Simulated scan of single mutants.
Amino acid sequence: MLAEADALAAVVDDIAARFPPRAGVLPRTAAPSPPVAPDYTEAVEEEQMLLATATANPADIESVRWLLPDDLTLPLHAGLWQCLTALARRREPVDPVTVLWEAQQRGLLDDGSEPGEVLHLLAEPTGSVEHWSERALQRSLLATADRTGRRIEAYAGDTANTPFQLVVGARRSLADIGAVRTRWQHATGTVPTPQPRPAPTTRAGPPTTTAAYTGRAARATR
């Protein structure tokens, strides 16, 4: 999927060379909905294990600073991750009770979540913080790539969009992938060899003939 994103970026660059984008021109196409509602069952279970394991091993949180709350699928999980990182940053004690207290102070349970359920969620650690963090970030990267592809496809399919709008919208969408991808590379220590992009196609101008050049030179000396 990431290779396809790179190929798409090359196509966008080629279009940009043909139709340089103008500032302030954005497509108005609505973001498309996924064709099939995603199944978050596995993601939710793994995020719960991440939160519980981080609660039991708060010293490991610092090593996964590349994981952001937005990488998690549920708002409650994202909020609890913020609580954990905040407690670790302040070097305060971290256990299920202190995380629950921090969550209550932030209003995370105002949506109806029960304190007992949160305590239970945080009390069953397994595996390592790094492992579950990488899993969450990988899902976030793939989900971002999928959303970006569908968004650019919608831009291209909207006949109301000009080439300028397509280029600007596509580049903004591709930047989202780039941001998550950079964090993924940092997390896994893998920096792929950059693939050379084909030179953009330029518009051909009228041929310059010897006769035309001679004529211009003669006029210039008059």
Rank of each mutant, 00 (worst) to 15 (best):
A3P: 14
E4D: 14
E4H: 13
A5F: 05
D6K: 12
A7T: 13
L8M: 14
A9T: 13
A9R: 15
V11M: 05
V11F: 02
V11N: 06
D13A: 10
A16P: 12
R18A: 13
F19A: 08
P21Y: 01
R22P: 01
G24V: 01
G24T: 01
V25G: 00
L26S: 10
P27M: 03
R28T: 15
T29M: 07
A31D: 15
P32G: 03
P35H: 04
P35A: 06
A37N: 11
A37S: 09
V44Y: 10
E45S: 14
E45F: 09
E46I: 09
E47H: 09
E47L: 06
E47K: 05
A52F: 00
A52K: 01
T53I: 05
T55H: 00
A56H: 06
A59Y: 06
D60I: 04
I61Q: 03
S63W: 07
S63F: 08
L67M: 04
L67C: 06
D71K: 00
L72H: 05
T73Y: 12
T73Q: 13
L76V: 06
L80K: 00
L80S: 03
W81D: 10
T85A: 06
A88T: 09
A88K: 01
A88R: 04
E92R: 15
E92S: 13
V94I: 10
T98P: 04
W101Q: 14
Q104F: 03
R106S: 02
G107N: 01
L108Q: 00
L109G: 08
D110Y: 01
D110F: 01
D111P: 03
G112Q: 02
E114V: 12
E114A: 08
L119S: 00
L119Y: 00
L121Q: 06
E130W: 04
W132C: 02
S133Q: 09
A136M: 01
A136I: 01
L137Y: 05
R139Y: 12
R139M: 10
S140T: 11
S140Y: 04
S140M: 06
S140W: 04
L141C: 05
L141T: 08
L141R: 12
A145W: 03
R147W: 02
T148Q: 09
R150N: 09
I152Y: 00
A154P: 04
A154T: 07
A156P: 10
G157A: 14
T159F: 08
V168Q: 08
R171I: 10
L174I: 13
A175Q: 14
A179I: 15
A179T: 15
V180P: 02
V180W: 00
W184V: 11
Q185C: 06
A187M: 09
V191R: 07
V191S: 05
P192T: 05
P198G: 07
A199C: 06
P200R: 10
T201K: 13
R203T: 15
G205Q: 14
P206L: 08
T210M: 11
A212S: 13
T214Q: 12
T214G: 08
G215H: 12
G215R: 15
R216W: 03
R216A: 02
R216I: 02
A218T: 14
A220C: 02
T221P: 02
